[in-house]
């Protein structure tokens, strides 16, 4: 498993670069959370811990921590699939404010 939120790997010359693209140069330095204009918020009092939001997240920005879904706002693009698919409607999309 690659480290989460690692720094950008910089290759100084072409000779240093790997021949095949692989996990040596990972893409986690690209914080895609800036694309978002609505954010999902999880209401734990209504959550039934089914894991459907985790299953359908295309990023995957939803992690299961201690059996609860936790959204990683550094990467969530705000597509809203989790809120749409949630069977207990415990995830709501809230407008992003600065």
């Amino acid at each position: 498993m690659r480290p989460k939120k690692a720094k950008k790997v910089v290759f100084k010359s072409a000779a240093e670069m790997p021949l095949l693209i692989c996990s040596v140069g990972h893409q986690t330095h690209n914080l895609t959370g800036a694309w978002r204009n609505i954010r999902p918020e999880v209401d734990r009092s209504k959550c039934i811990q089914c894991g459907i939001c985790w299953k359908f997240c295309p990023e995957p920005a939803i992690e299961i921590v201690d059996e609860w879904p936790v959204v990683d706002y550094d990467y969530c693009k705000g597509c809203g699939i989790c809120a749409e698919e949630c069977p207990s409607k415990c995830i709501v999309m809230v407008e992003e404010r600065k």
Binding site: M1, R2, K4, H26, Q27, T28, H29, N30, L31, T32, W35, G51, W54, K55, P58, E59, P60, A61, I64, D72, D74, Y75, K77, G78, C79, G80, I81
Partner: peptide, 18 residues
């Protein structure tokens, strides 16, 4: 969890939303 838990795909890719 109904599908395997390990995550071979990382965040930060360039796909569109959804």
């Amino acid at each position: 969890l109904t599908i395997p838990a390990d995550e071979p795909m990382a965040c930060g890719h360039l796909a569109c939303q959804g």
